[in-house]
Every structure is written in structure tokens, then in C-alpha cells.
Design a protein around this nucleic acid. Sequence first.
DNA 1: CATCATGTTATAAT
DNA 2: CATTATAACATGAT
Length: 265
Amino acid sequence: MPELAEVEYFRRQWDAGLSRRVLRVHVNQSARVFRGESALAMQHGLSGCKLLGSRTHGKNLLFRFSGGFWLSGHLGMSGELRLGGPNHEPTKHDHLVLYQKSGSLVFHDPRMFGRLRLHQGKAAPDWWLALPPEILSPAFNLEFVRCQLLRRAKSPLKPVLLDQAAFPGIGNWMADEVLWQERLHPTTLAGSLARKGAASLHRRVQKISARALEIIGTSWDDPPASWLFLHRWKAGGSCPRCRGQLSRDEIGGRTTCWCAKCQRR
DNA sequence: CATCATGTTATAAT
DNA sequence: CATTATAACATGAT
């Protein structure tokens, strides 16, 4: 499910617990989302702590608690952050539940490709601080993008857009959306873009990210029908620009949707 | 029953 | 070293 805008939407769900103390914690100890972690340490660590703040970085989430605790999360393919009542009965896929006086914060993930980690320290974990520039930050400038395109010059654009070290937060639908709006075929080699092409791609990535955050990140609304988004899922969909039949195939290991007429190499 | 899914990672092959 | 392909992970929807 989640790409940067969906992740932001889920982050906001837990805002209900801000400035509130965690009274007790439920963990689904054997759940894969705790791989490499001690679920019990998380349970004990977060008990009694107050949720002080949260943020996202691409598809990553970070929640700051009192006592120097930081809970980081990734939603994988099917993760969700939900709210429950103060006596929420955990279901099979509710792997972490933080109970507060007025309600509970639930991490729910059927497929368990998601992940939860706990860090204790004065600052956020090192791996978080080492993440690449966020798409809507000043550091994500044209030079950065050109450098990424150059580094993977012989790769098709599709997998390059999916590279979280280059375009953090871009996932399968956003990558297809960027390529479609730019009229670039997904197999176009990253190194084949001239400076102007790279500049246009850079602006497009930022624009789609910003718009998706407004639309999906706040209320989970659908992007406009003029985008590829609503048409790309069903086989047999048609291009909202030229009405042509949309193509689907696996590119860079992921199902990719494009318009053979509009998108040229 | 088979196929597919808005993701990441380890490993092998080129 | 850069890059690609493949499998693996685990579950639910169609």
C-alpha cells in the first residue's frame, strides 16, 4: 500500500496519541515485523512513555517518546497505523498496540513485510540521520537528481525511480505516474536524459509528491482522473490523455503500466 | 487452485 | 564495481 503520501496519512492517524502517556503495550511477539529486535524490550521500553512527536522520511516513520525512546516503522506492502479504543482487542495482525487512557495506537500488518524498531538515545538513530535528501527538501536539487541518473546511467528509469536511496518515498504507482506525466517510456535509460530532461523529471517528481501529500496524505482522497493513477490498476484501462490502450508488463521486477502511444524512449 | 499485490533484501549471475 | 534476475518473506483478494 504505502508510498510517501500514504505513509504520511498513517503517521497522522497516530496524532491522536500525542502528548499522551502509554499505559501498557501489547506485542505480537513472534511477528516478523520485529525481526532483529526484541519485542519484549519494546514492550517494556515504551510502557509509561509519552508520545512527543512524529515524522516521516520517504516510506519511513519515526515516533519520539519520552525517556529517549524512538520507535521507527516501515509499513512494507500492507502495513497500516490505526486507532483503537482504550480496550482494543488485538486481532491476528495487530502486532503492536500502545494503550493510552483515551484510546490505543495500533500497528496492523497482515503480510508483515513491514518493520518496527526501537532505539534509545538523545538523537534519532544513525541510520535515520543518514537517509538521503527528502524529495521536498532543498537538498533534493537538480544536481542531486542528475548525479543519481548518472550513477545508474545504464538502468531503465523505472527501477531508478524506485531506488529509495535516490527517490525516497517513490513507489510503484508514483514511479509510473512520473513517467507517464513526463511522457517517458519506463525502459528509457537513466543516462539518456539531457539536462533539460533531468530538470523536468526533477520538477515532476517534486510536483507529484507535493500533490499526493495534499490529496492522499491528509484525507486519503483519490488523485484527479487526469492522472494515470485511477486507470493503471485494472487491465484494459485506457490512457486519460489519448484514450489509447494502456500497456502492462514487468519492468525492473515490478508490474509497470504505461501508454505505448504517449510514452516514448 | 492459480495469480497477483502501492516493498525490501540477500544472493547469484552477468 | 555496476547491474540484473531471482527468490524469499506471508497473507488476502480475485
